[in-house]
């Protein structure tokens, strides 16, 4: 379009029912009058030959560039329906693309989580409805507290596992690229962890509804799960990330197993324990805030 042809359109504008090349060149250059343009464009709508002729007058480099961008965008796609929905809710699309790389948001991972929960919850339900003899004494109320022990052990650990998969280097195959890139590691971590946390909490909370237990069980699992994950993240700023996740897991598993052995597994989600978890959550959040720049370093030792 920068090539402006100063000559007016010659008398031979139409040849054999098609636009002459001079006419098309002038049209491409933008020097044709409006009314002639209308008839040229009407003709182009139905004539492939003249369309190709017009293309020849357009800057080839510009067409090639748009072509490669188009094919690149077509290859990238616009994600699934979930992603489009979230985009419309106002979340910036690049964050969604980053989150998509998290292993704990993949269908395979989520299915495994659901599978484990199904087994554990199923076992508890079976004991409750006397389908299998759990050998647990039935506590006050209508639920077999002992049968809940596996669920109470496993639930928050599954949430921790989901979050661990979001921040542990061993789950990020291109970890070195993530470190060497300018995008804030802390921001990346936060986005991924929150996504993983949400994705993991949903099946666990649903499982807590399904499992025959006290009505407050779903809510009671929230604070311990959050506390575990925050503790693991805070510990990762002090020790090696993998060690941090293992320590966090152990800190939950040990009390849960001990209490289960003493036939009082529900103590782990009762008010005193909730308070303890809340304290851990707060302390970890503070440590995390103060030491968050450790994640930017990503030093490999």
């Amino acid at each position: 379009m920068t090539n402006r042809d100063p000559e007016p359109v010659g008398p031979v504008a139409w040849v054999d029912g098609h636009a002459s090349d001079g006419m098309l060149a002038s049209y491409a250059a933008g020097t044709v009058e409006t009314i002639e343009v209308w008839s040229v464009e009407a003709h182009l709508t139905g004539c492939g030959r003249c369309r190709s002729a017009v293309s020849a007058h357009v800057d080839a480099a510009r067409l090639a560039r748009n072509r490669s961008v188009l094919l690149s965008r077509a290859a990238l796609g616009d994600g699934g329906r979930v992603r489009r929905l979230l985009c419309r809710c106002g979340l910036p699309d690049y964050l969604l693309d980053l989150v998509a790389a998290t292993p704990s948001l993949r269908v395979s991972w989520l299915l495994s989580v659901v599978g484990v929960l199904a087994v554990v919850a199923g076992e508890a339900a079976a004991v409750r409805y006397h389908l299998i003899g759990g050998g647990y004494p039935v506590a006050a109320g209508y639920w077999p507290a002992g049968a809940l022990a596996p669920f109470l052990l496993v639930g928050p650990l599954l949430v921790l596992a989901g979050v661990a998969a979001a921040f542990l280097p061993m789950f990020d195959p291109a970890y070195q690229l993530t470190v060497a890139a300018p995008f804030s590691s802390v921001k990346l971590l936060l986005v991924r962890t929150i996504a993983a946390l949400t994705a993991a909490l949903v099946p666990v909370v649903i499982g807590a509804f399904v499992v025959p237990g006290p009505g407050w069980l779903p809510v009671a699992l929230l604070v311990p799960s959050l506390a575990l994950c925050t503790f693991a993240l805070a510990a990762a700023t002090v020790v090696d990330a993998r060690a941090a996740a293992v320590i966090a897991g152990t800190l939950w598993a040990l009390p849960a197993l001990l209490l289960a052995a003493n036939h009082v597994p529900l103590r782990i989600v009762q008010p005193s324990a909730q308070l303890a978890c809340a304290a851990v959550l707060l302390a970890s959040a503070v440590v995390l805030y103060l030491r968050h720049d450790r994640f930017e370093l990503g030093w490999m030792r």
Partner: peptide
């Protein structure tokens, strides 16, 4: 994904770079 990590936020620009 790597382009986002390199702070190329705009989708169109990213597509151009990828291409």
């Amino acid at each position: 994904y790597v382009a986002i990590l390199k702070e190329i936020i705009d989708r169109r620009q990213r597509a151009e770079e990828v291409a």
